[in-house]
Nucleic acid binder design. Sequence first.
RNA 1: GCCGAAGUGGUGGAAUUGGUAGACACGCUAGACUUAGGAUCUAGUGCCGCAAGGCGUGGAGGUUCAAGUCCUCUCUUCGGUACCA
Length: 869
Amino acid sequence: MEERYNPADVEPKWQTYWKDQGLFKVTEDPSKEKYYLLEMFPYPSGKIHIGHVRNYTIGDVVVRYKRMQGYNVLHPMGWDAFGMPAENAAIDNNTHPAAWTHDNIRTMRAQLKKMGFSYDWDREIATCRPEYYKWEQWLFLKMLKNGMAYRKESFVNWCEKCQTVLANEQVEQDRCWRCSQPVHQKKLWQWFFRITDYAEDLLVHCDQLPGWPEKVTVMQKNWIGKSVGSELKFQVAGMDEEIEVFTTRPDTVFGATFMCLAPEHPLVETLCRGTGQALAVADFLQKVATQERSLEGLEKYEKEGVFTGRYCINPATGEEIPIYTANFVLMGYGTGAIMSVPCGDQRDFDFARKYGLEIRVVVQPEGERLDPDTMEQAYTGPGIMVNSGQFNDMDNDAAMEAITDWLAAQGRGKKAVSFRLRDWGISRQRYWGAPIPVIHCKDCGVVPVPESDLPITLPEDANLMEKGGSPLPYLDDFKQTPCPACGRQDARRDTDTMDTFVESSWYYLRYCSPRYEHGMFDPEAVKYWAPVDQYIGGVEHAVLHLLYSRYFMRVLHHFDMIDFKEPFTRLLTQGMVCKETMTCPEHGYLFPEQAEKKGEDTFVCHLCGRDVEVGRVIKMSKSKKNVVDPNDLLAKYGADVTRLFCLFAAPPERDLEWSEDGVEGSNRFINRVWRLAIDCMEKINIRQIERFSGPAGDLKNPDARALYIKTHQTIQKVTADIDESFHFNTAIAAVMELVNAVYSIDLDAADSETAAVVLAAMESMVLLLSPIIPHFCEELYEKMGGQGSVLEHSWPVYRKDSLETDETLVVVQVNGKLRSRFSVAAGTSEAVIKEMALADGKIARHIQDQPLKKIILVNKKQILVNIVV
RNA sequence: GCCGAAGUGGUGGAAUUGGUAGACACGCUAGACUUAGGAUCUAGUGCCGCAAGGCGUGGAGGUUCAAGUCCUCUCUUCGGUACCA
């Protein structure tokens, strides 16, 4: 047997064995309990990165563990293959997005196979294949028919010079990333899914996801953002128009001294027409056209506005108040109009001060008087009503309801709820995506593509334009089509494609029957496998992908296609893999291999020799070039060392800061176990001793008994760590302790009892490590005489009668400070322990002659005595 | 800005319900073995101190016999922020 573990031989050997035996292939088997574990599928961006390795290793450990426990486990893999990077790469490298994507998939698939992940590769899918997106188009048509998909005008980032739509990522400081020209907001007709219809349901069920981390459900709840308040109507003076506002503070309506409309509010142009403000408004609208219209974007710009020239009537006071249009009001949020109450809202307060508008105090803290002329900020807390007619002197809390009821009685308001969540815009003016299956006809309007014409395949002969625009609108073969309704020859296909989040919202169901040809999935297969029992992926998906998936399941449930609403029973959000960035003053971000180590923490640029600035530790990303290539690790250490390191370096939910040093330690550990196994085989197996498996009490040799107890404690600890908390780092640490314990035994001098216990420890060690470092454990299992694959062995079970050690440690504190410790035999009475504590020499010195106040004894994993004097 | 996290030795991290802070590793130091060592084994290693002892979980307060853990305030970093996936 080799002196060192050699992954280059062992790993391919077992990968071939697993494949030949078909160990990872699964089918529905009603006689076994199913377990569906899924890791978020990768975007095929080029090569597997270390974040993928971490994600898939975590999943693979759980899968192998569950298999050993007898579950029928589904563990598939596929590719989130549509998306913008393929188009950018196609432009930069003069290739085709499809070719680039398929190349990447080939590369990445080979890498995953080298890692020894236990996927059922027969179920592999790629979302860019027509047989996949056909069913997405089918669902789109069904949603369209049922009013769940609709079209409306909405803004996109537009670069005039490139004549193309830009993703947010392609906008750098309000400028186009390719040509640096200012980006404008352009209105386009786009498709939306009515996710807001499910806002309440999605919100309520956040509290019924016990298997999800609370931080994720909290983020989702805040994202949906339900607020309870009132909808109020403000009549425009001298016009037959009404402005509706939503407010969570109806109690402050008497203090509403002006109105603000979003710049894109449909009334803005109507209002200013013929008032003398028309020009000023037009100037303002042009100015804000370059500003990003999102909640985040708001904060980047100075808050400003302009008077529209018109007034509306405050429904509470009956007074006319000026109507402004302001850049901090968003059309997509609420009604696109807000009643401005400067005394009770800081933004309104700043705006009022800036434009000299009236500030009227309507709520003030109890026992205080606020003066609008000297106030320095808005008062947003609770208080007593003033300047509010018959509601004066009420608590503002009570006034909310009273004022709403009063206005409702006059038909000027009602109670209402508002959500922060907006409908899901799915149109993309891009090539590399699933075509939206509708046709536009001059006579018939929007006409759905007949189901029999699906899939609408993406034309392959398209050339991407160098400025990044989609070629679809220019491909006449694709675009020109007769109207399916009236037969008009000059109808045109919709040339937008779907958001790639649409593909990832249901792929986990496709895995249940990936080649099914009669629908999105085989209902029987989904009935058996779905929902996903354990989903694992990056925390950065906490809101969008995970919320869209929950929404999609509700849609399918509505159509009676599935009998559940929640796609993922348990969720593990893994942290990111981070590394410092390196920046060269000349060449910008550098890949690790482009920086040469000069001193302890100093590097020089490989290209120009200048000093490199070592920057912050952030998420590994290609654009920041702070990536680590798993290929290097695989070549140097093999899959198992790489897997072990990823698990040992940090618990999964936490960010992992990459360090090369730790990998060497993992390598060392594996070889340490290897040598131990060799030693055991040479010194024990040869004596033909049987492994011990009885209760610890049967062992006479105290060293053997201690090791046996340690073994069962380790089984208990590792099982709990994998099953309950996914804390593989502490599971590995526990096995390391067991390895160290076996190392401390002199095998040459071991009696037969000890030898039998050592064998039991070794077998447990191999079984416990097998989900983590499977190739290595298969090899040892075979060498130690195991039959078949270790995967087919059942997971070890600890003996409850072999967990308790003979002695217990007592720690003694005086006034909460640790002063002494000693051991007692297990089962010593509390009274005796207290006496022993008081009699302890070190303790006596600390007590001296101070009177005893009390003695607290805590008996948990150790015994603690605290003497208070 | 808003929402959500994280902060513990030189480093990664450990610590059921508040109960020995630093498990297990990396690194470092010393020793052993060796022709050699980036192999292996043994011992040591939070900080200050000769010691007794004192100080220590981002910072400032508080509750408690006892706080990394609970409460209040605060600082820093990271993720998301709806067209990156």
